[in-house]
Design a protein around this nucleic acid. Sequence first.
DNA 1: CGTTGATTTCAACGCTCGTTGAGTTTCGGA
DNA 2: TCCGAAACTCAACGAGCGTTGAAATCAACG
Lengths: 197, 197
Amino acid sequence: MPRTGRRPGYSDTREAILTAARQAFAERGYDKASIRQIATSAGVDPALVHHYFGAKEQLFLAAMEAPIDPGKAIEQVVAGGLDGIGERLVRTFVTVWDSPAGTPAAALVRSAVSHDWSARMLREFITTQILRRVIGNLELDPNEGPLRASLVASQLMGLIMARYIIKLEPLASAPPETIVATVAPTIQRYLSGPLDQ
Amino acid sequence: MPRTGRRPGYSDTREAILTAARQAFAERGYDKASIRQIATSAGVDPALVHHYFGAKEQLFLAAMEAPIDPGKAIEQVVAGGLDGIGERLVRTFVTVWDSPAGTPAAALVRSAVSHDWSARMLREFITTQILRRVIGNLELDPNEGPLRASLVASQLMGLIMARYIIKLEPLASAPPETIVATVAPTIQRYLSGPLDQ
DNA sequence: CGTTGATTTCAACGCTCGTTGAGTTTCGGA
DNA sequence: TCCGAAACTCAACGAGCGTTGAAATCAACG
């Protein structure tokens, strides 16, 4: 029974590592997530992780790459135009975050707070992948669009922090409908209301 | 010229360590801030930090203890009653965070995301030191009060994240008055408006 | 002036981490 | 069937961390 060398039969090790990495990054953030623990959790030697993905940063990028693609969700939300967009956005948002798809996103947020280039990544991601599309599709006034969009981002990031990271009650356990009912008007006003009232 | 032993003359080493610690915790969060680097930044040996404050957790507590006391600020904000509280709250909030007093608060937030008991601390702090006082002083309906308060917390935490941590533009460089004008109505509605519209 | 205690540094322990290079096993095409 | 490449592990390096115990120096009080 060899303890080293290639294993017999088909093997899905690469995906196993990615899955373990996503969960680790989501639960602990970039810095606290360790390659050694990711390897253990994938039933593998740490060196194998390095063999497949190279340095830790590249593993992080690989783990984030596939699962985060908000393109279709944004299109659906934005398709209906400004009317009722607050409700559609918040409902989609909470649905996604309450689902397993929220895991890698949580990883980005957790990492962004303590890690400099994770913060840069998140900023780039938010602006180029989300805000820009929203602004473009909604045809907002170019003078006000960016501010409106970043206000939306601030409320949604606060929702993430309160509900999923800090777990502030009663927000953390409130049913999705409560969140939608209370937060949607804020988003609606940030996008379509007068900015100073 | 001795390299060890007590230094001649008066010494404010204890305070120097606390100052360095506050800045380090604020810039890097609990985990990444290292005692060795705090010591270096205070011009001191790491062992001296331990001599004065004990373990790292106690140093963190000591660094947070004095500077964070929102009692008076809250009283002023709340004193005027529900009318116009959104504007007063956001203005006070931004003023404090734009000032040096924002440093230790940023430390708490940064640490809370990656560190479990920092998150617990921040949650306790927000609920007992802030939300409870706000709810009590404003005499909110006990059924709605906690939800209203945690919605306020979510928007304010999102503002922190977007403006001070991620530095999302144009929010990060917007003048305080813009923040007040745009965010205050949200806070006002969370506190005094109908919850579902 | 001598002694006690506070202040400060030094050297080291034990730990975890990311990363590396060499070695071992299996697969798959020629 | 052979052989190169892919998969995989082992052992180790070097760095940084929190923490510790002992020693050195100075201040203060009798």
